[in-house]
């Protein structure tokens, strides 16, 4: 009894101790978030609306801004589907087959995570630029890649291609090959197996990968900055446009476009949370569905 009572007292002491720790930790996180995230957001919005709503509307409806928005959305619209297809194919190959060079492929997929985006952009300039290896040939055939739309798409493709694959690989590896093998032994062909068996089982991971890929495609600065050439109204994406406006001391304009980007990010986050929520409640309803890795895998959003 005495031992038990002591145990209870010790637990109570622990509880008190852990409460202090908990409050301290939450406090530090909140303070940090406020400084790093919330204050800047407020600052952006403050500057954007500093000269009133009319100036803000004028800034975001200027032809150059609209062109930047169009370019960003078009780039994302091209890059995201391509990287989705690539990501699914790569994840499929890595998770379901054994082949020579598999580890090399995994490493290569991770490469854009570890290489600075500026370098990724430079690679294309060096390859396709006027002084580049393919430059003269492209020039002769009147094809412009660098400092043009194709260059922006290529650079964005390179930077964002790991997102879908990285999200799918652990899920597909965990699921193994048995469901597909079952489908094939039941007489299904490759397409049926993919669309009716594989795709439904990876849909959440796939959607999440697509969202991440999309967010990065719209927000990419470094790689795109190197290849774009900063031709106003032609090859400036939204992040680049923000920089140009800022450098020209058009603070209101810069922050107005920045707020647009933030809006896009917000939409992405809302989409992500909705999907996550839907996925989670669905899984809760079906307790036997094998648990996938946490949706917020830090290795993926790194």
């Amino acid at each position: 009894m005495i031992a038990a009572a002591q145990g209870v007292r010790a637990d109570a002491a622990n509880d008190a101790g852990s409460r202090v720790v908990r409050i301290a930790l939450i406090g530090i996180s909140l303070l940090f978030l406020t400084l790093i995230l919330i204050v800047p957001v407020i600052a952006v919005l403050g500057h954007a609306f500093a000269d009133g709503l009319d100036v803000y509307l004028a800034a975001i409806t200027s032809p150059e801004t609209l062109s930047a928005v169009r370019l960003t959305l078009t780039t994302a619209a091209i890059v995201v589907p391509i990287n989705t297809v690539f990501g699914v194919a790569a994840a499929w190959a890595i998770a379901k087959f054994d082949f020579r060079g598999k580890h090399l492929l995994v490493t290569l997929i991770d490469l854009p995570f570890s290489v600075s985006p500026v370098i990724a952009g430079l690679v294309f300039v060096l390859l396709f630029g006027a002084q580049g290896r393919l430059g003269p040939w492209l020039d002769a055939h009147d094809i412009s890649i660098v400092f043009a739309f194709p260059g922006i798409v290529l650079a964005t493709l390179l930077v964002t291609f790991p997102y879908v694959a990285r999200e799918l690989i652990p899920v597909m590896q965990m699921q193994g090959r048995e469901a597909e093998e079952a489908a094939i032994s039941l007489g299904a062909n490759g397409w049926t197996t993919f669309f009716r068996v594989t795709l439904p089982s990876i849909r959440w991971a796939l959607l999440y990968g697509i969202i991440l890929c999309n967010a990065r495609a719209m927000g990419e600065f470094g790689a795109v900055a190197v290849v774009s050439g900063h031709i106003r109204g032609l090859t400036t994406t939204m992040p680049l446009h923000v920089e140009i406006l800022y450098n020209e001391y058009d603070l209101t304009g810069a922050f107005a476009v920045a707020s647009l980007l933030m809006l896009l990010a917000l939409l992405t986050m809302i989409a992500k949370t909705t999907i996550e929520h839907y996925g989670l409640t669905r899984r809760r309803r079906l307790p036997h569905i094998p648990r996938g890795p946490k949706r917020n895998d830090p290795g993926i959003s790194a």
């Binding site: 469901a179 569905i289 094998p290």
Partner: peptide, 8 residues
């Protein structure tokens, strides 16, 4: 299959 491999 050993683990049934049903389509979940």
């Amino acid at each position: 299959f050993q683990n049934y491999a049903l389509f979940r």
